[in-house]
């Protein structure tokens, strides 16, 4: 268990190493990696039952990053959690690396499902939680999606299935950063109010500031206490969070920082590397 202050410091390091990886290869998705970082750090360090020394341990909680393009955020979180050396972030997206452009479950320890094709990870996670229900296995499945990703039809097919089977062992977190490649989600194809939609589909929902560590920890507590229904946590976030010139800019969805930009970003994030 980490204190809120410790979680914040870890999140800064996670952001820095995610950006260092993207910078090293000159490609990747900084915007969504930075928006999802606090969600992932709070889950992996204080909520999920996982053992980095035994990534496939029986009974572990599982997390599926359905917005697979935020892989640098996930990898960096896993690295800082102890699954591998954070320096390995510098191999991101390079030939032979375990850190593929999108998460590969057979390559990277801690990755529970290969994702990247949007919407599928959400449905995969519903299947995982359903399997645990059928097997009467007491553990949780977490799934993290983007807000633009909610435009995929399979999300809503799977949402119906999760409600039908009363999957209270499933917690979805929507990284609602409001941007997608072509611009504002509200303009491209509006998905808000997300809470109303999931409620209409039979889910319990909560809203939270996705960058407030204490609020995130509190909302997970509430979500885990829900019985008989799957839970969706709508986490309001800022794309590019923590780096002023990347914040709320669709242009930073899939672009690598140059040397100066990386240096400035690390400085803003409080790093001295």
């Amino acid at each position: 268990m980490k204190t809120v202050q410790e979680l914040k410091e870890i999140a800064s390091s996670v952001r820095i190493d995610a950006l260092r990886g993207i910078h090293a290869v000159g490609a990747g998705h900084p915007g969504g990696s930075l928006s999802v970082t606090d969600i992932l750090v709070s889950l992996y360090f204080n909520v999920m039952n996982v053992d980095p020394q035994d990534p496939c341990a029986e009974g572990r909680d599982r997390l599926v990053l359905s917005k697979g393009h935020a892989a640098p955020g996930l990898y960096s979180t896993l690295a800082h959690r102890g699954y591998f050396d954070p320096e390995e972030m510098l191999t991101l997206r390079k030939l032979g690396s375990r850190l593929q452009g999108h998460p590969d479950m057979h390559k990277c320890p801690g990755v529970e499902m290969s994702t990247g094709s949007l919407g599928q990870g959400f449905s995969n996670a519903v299947g995982m939680a359903l399997a645990d229900k059928m097997d009467k296995r007491d553990r949780r499945t977490f799934v993290v999606t983007g807000d633009g990703e909610l435009q995929e039809g399979i999300i809503w097919e799977a949402a119906l299935t999760a409600a039908k089977y009363g999957l209270d062992n499933l917690i979805a977190v929507v990284d609602l950063n409001g941007l997608q490649i072509d611009g504002r989600v509200d303009t491209v194809k509006k998905v808000v109010p997300v809470e109303d939609k999931f409620e209409a589909f039979g889910w319990e929902t909560f809203s939270v500031d996705g960058h407030d560590m204490q609020a995130l920890l509190d909302v997970y507590e509430k979500a885990m206490a829900v019985k008989g229904k799957p839970v969706c946590i709508v986490a309001k976030t800022v794309k590019g969070k923590g780096v002023s010139f990347m914040e709320d800019q669709a242009g930073w969805h899939g672009k690598a920082p140059n040397d100066e930009q990386l240096e400035a970003a690390i400085k803003e994030l409080g790093g001295d590397r």
């Binding site: 499902m113 449905s123 299947g127 995982m128 359903l130 399979i154 799977a158 299935t161």
Partner: peptide, 23 residues
């Protein structure tokens, strides 16, 4: 041990992967 997915073949097959990877 039977899962009725309703009229959603994509969801059925993505969930099938999740169930399979659970053993």
């Amino acid at each position: 041990r039977f899962v009725e997915s309703g009229i959603s073949e994509q969801d059925m097959l993505a969930e099938a992967a999740g169930i399979a990877h659970s053993g």
